[in-house]
């Protein structure tokens, strides 16, 4: 099992506040890695550093890209993290293009490929064959993911008008259209009902096992994290307090303390319920 992403001594400070404090973490290729921790532990900040939205104060983020060799994510601007390193994220509070249709959302995700094919829009303006082929390919790819995620019937609806659970799925479908090497999901199960979470579990396992996409998953819903993750890292106050298999993490006293305070009995009960 090779390491895809290796986070070394990552620190992120905002003025006096240290959101991430000397964090090190390995994300293996082709596996699902869960990141859990109480609210405000620094999970989303980690994602923001990973995807170029924040410049880390110090530390390194090395990605062993299957085609381009080693890349340093901390040195890339946010759009290059996606375009060149193929590390794609979703957002905790869903960021779709609400007035555009579901299909358009998925086509926009393939902007860089299409823009190159349209040759500064000139080939596109004259409808040259090269561009038409690229567009057809983009539509095919979008249609494939729409089918896989059961969104075909909604393809021509404005994304912003659809129910919350479906918007979550659209956001994942859109990220998949970028053809990610590493997919970073920020609380994908938030706001989903139990049936939808179960479908999400299935989807994540499919992506990882069948498609070989490595997934980094921030999640509060233990039924998702514990069931699908191969490996879990626990963060509190910006530091990693535990790491290991779901089983090991579930029984780690440090983790129980972080989530539930000192009371051990309740912690056991909470762990069992999860």
């Amino acid at each position: 099992m090779s390491t895809l992403l290796s986070v070394r001594n990552l620190t992120m400070r905002f003025g006096g506040l240290t959101a991430i404090d000397d964090l090190s973490l390995e994300v293996p290729a082709g596996r699902i890695t869960g990141i859990i921790g109480p609210n405000g532990a620094g999970k989303t900040t980690l994602f923001n550093c990973l995807t170029g939205f924040y410049k880390p104060t110090s530390g390194t983020l090395r990605l062993a890209h299957p085609h381009h060799g080693e890349m340093r994510l901390e040195a890339l601007a946010s759009h290059k993290v996606v375009r060149d390193a193929q590390v794609v994220r979703t957002f905790q509070n869903i960021r779709l293009f609400p007035k555009m249709t579901v299909l358009e959302n998925l086509i926009v995700a393939q902007h860089n490929v299409l823009q190159r094919a349209s040759r500064f829009s000139i080939a596109g303006l004259f409808g040259l064959a090269a561009y038409r082929e690229a567009e057809a390919a983009a539509l095919d790819r979008a249609a494939t993911w729409l089918e896989r995620l059961g969104l075909v019937d909604l393809a021509d609806h404005a994304a912003g008008d659809l129910p919350y659970g479906i918007q979550r799925r659209i956001e994942i479908a859109r990220a998949l259209c970028v053809d990610p090497v590493l997919l970073c999901l920020d609380e994908p199960a938030a706001g989903l009902n139990p049936r939808e979470s179960a479908e999400l579990n299935e989807l994540l396992l499919y992506l990882c096992r069948e498609r070989g996409v490595a997934i980094l998953l921030i999640e509060h819903d233990m039924s998702v994290v514990m069931n699908v993750s191969d490996h879990i890292g626990v963060i509190n106050y910006g530091r990693k307090i535990a790491e290991g298999t779901p089983e090991a993490v579930r029984n780690d006293p440090q983790v129980i303390k972080a989530y539930l305070g000192e009371d051990e009995d309740e912690a056991q009960a909470g762990g069992a319920a999860a």
Partner: peptide
């Protein structure tokens, strides 16, 4: 529609 989402799509 959303500039941040654009950046997150590699634009």
């Amino acid at each position: 529609e959303d500039e941040i989402a654009c950046r997150a799509m590699g634009m």
